[in-house]
Design a protein around this nucleic acid. Structure first.
Length: 184
DNA sequence: ATCCAGTGTC
DNA sequence: GACACGGGAT
């Protein structure tokens, strides 16, 4: 649900969704039409369909229990690199890195500071940083904190550098939006 | 216009 | 690598 969709907008629908489909079995048992209808008006309407497909697949082949290994998770359509890390670290407590838009922005600003964040080489650097920084324990809290720093402090438009704990070492401080993007 | 807990496709 | 995929908020 959270793929390219703000937390504030997901939250009410998430509650409704889980109330209606408390288990993967329940989701699998529903019709695709009903699932699509429950999803509305969140966008990206391939997502409910894929979520339903995943539920059916997990029920059919994995006894209704979501597998935790990267290869199997990644084999589902709709689950990419970010979701694998999120499921592993948040749901299973595994030591797995995540990179979403928030983490990418934070790590890019703190450790790179300028240039284009969206090139493939930079994306790989950011993943490498996220993995290298991963603590031995408390990975759930670490990943959550990194995301929250990006969502609440190191925001896209007007980052709140004055209250940021990374300010002293941040390569993007003092923040200048002209130093970010393809043309720099 | 830009951004948002991305991903699949060509 | 570019592009499509949604809808809501700033």
């Amino acid at each position: 649900m959270l793929q390219q969709t703000q937390v504030d907008r997901v939250l009410p629908k998430y509650e409704e969704w889980l109330s209606k489909y408390p288990t993967l079995e329940a989701l699998a048992a529903a019709s695709p039409e009903e699932v699509a209808d429950t999803w509305r008006p969140l966008g990206y309407n391939a997502r409910p369909q894929r979520l339903h497909e995943i539920a059916c697949e997990v029920v059919a082949r994995y006894g209704g229990e979501l597998p935790s290994d990267e290869t199997t998770l990644r084999s589902f359509k709709g689950i990419g690199a970010y979701t694998v890390g999120a499921v592993q670290s948040f749901a299973f407590g595994r030591r797995a890195a995540i990179v979403d838009t928030n983490v990418a922005r934070v790590l890019f600003r703190v450790f790179v500071g300028r240039g284009d964040r969206k090139t493939t080489v930079m994306e790989k650097r950011i993943w490498a940083m996220s993995e290298a920084l991963l603590p031995r324990r408390d990975v759930f809290d670490f990943n959550q904190a990194l995301m929250d720093l990006g969502a609440l402090v190191c925001v896209a438009r007007s980052p709140r550098c004055l209250v940021c704990p990374m300010r002293a070492i941040c390569r993007a401080y003092p923040f200048n939006p002209d130093l970010e993007g393809p043309t720099s």
